[in-house]
Design a protein around this nucleic acid. Structure first.
Lengths: 148, 148
DNA sequence: ATACCTTGTATAGCCTGCTATGCAATAATA
DNA sequence: TATTATTGCATAGCAGGCTATACAAGGTAT
């Protein structure tokens, strides 16, 4: 049973994710943002008016998690939710002005955190790292029913 | 503002961590374990009777998080907590028989999950990936006051 | 038209992470 | 020795992840 945590991918991935989360949280807290909203904001900055369903699919997040995240975002004045006139089940998620104005500083913060977190790696190593993660994610994600 | 999530280390790390967590959770659920207990169990399987303080330092987890995790572990019959006779503030964490017997199957589950999650990578790439993560974690961890 | 199925959200309840705070035991100092 | 500081743990409260479940809106089928 020679299991060494520092050689275990799962252990390292978890630890690394907590370190990234702490770092980004500290950077975006001053602008009133928390990390859970970030992925949703990224999607909405690119295409406003997405459905909750579309967000869950694009972000690989469970529907219930997204519903709760959107509730907090609405509470914090980042989004508004409007029922779709054509299909009363759907809710269109729209950014508020506040959220639109946070685009540039939030992206800057995320970029800075990525840079800082990877500072121990050379440019080549950083590229390798990204590529390896993309492979891992692709092979562990069910793409058969996503984002059609 | 050309920010692409699939090129962002932070985004990928978060997604990857959720995938690993889902995978391990599914594998250890049948034995009545959840992922939050795993790091603590790893330490205790190696050296039983550690203090809560020692656990938080070795796992880079906040004290409050560890206190809650240990409370769940005690509730679930994985550990017992005994006050230290020499220093009444400290609590020695000891594994129950149940936890000791879970060692082998739990390690097997974690090993299997690591293997499955990395199946898209060659042996060389897996080594590179581990090494890169170790570098990132080391450069983002404050080692000045840890584990003295 | 009625009954049934599917789809999109919401809610309840839990785990795992965090910060902030309280408190008891010990250590240090005036 | 009495006071103060430090140390170790617990608790409150929240964010963000999950599963299970409820429910209303929209389709389908008889």
């Amino acid at each position: 049973m020679e299991f060494r945590k520092h050689q275990s991918a799962g252990y390292l991935v978890n630890h690394m994710a907590r370190l990234f989360a702490r770092g980004l949280a500290a950077r975006i807290k001053p602008m009133g943002l928390s990390i859970g909203t970030f992925p949703a904001l990224l999607e909405l900055w690119e295409t406003d008016g997405l459905t909750q369903k579309q967000l869950t699919e694009r972000l690989d997040i469970e529907q219930a998690t997204m519903a709760n995240t959107l509730a907090r975002m609405e509470r914090d004045g980042l989004i508004t939710r409007k029922r779709d006139s054509a299909d009363g089940r759907k809710q269109r998620i729209c950014l508020t002005n506040r959220a639109r104005h946070l685009h540039a500083p939030a992206i800057a913060a995320a970029t800075a955190e990525n840079h800082a977190a990877l500072r121990a790696l050379s440019t080549d190593e950083q590229r390798q790292f990204i590529t390896l993660m993309q492979k891992i994610i692709a092979s562990n994600t069910d793409t058969t029913t996503k984002d059609q």
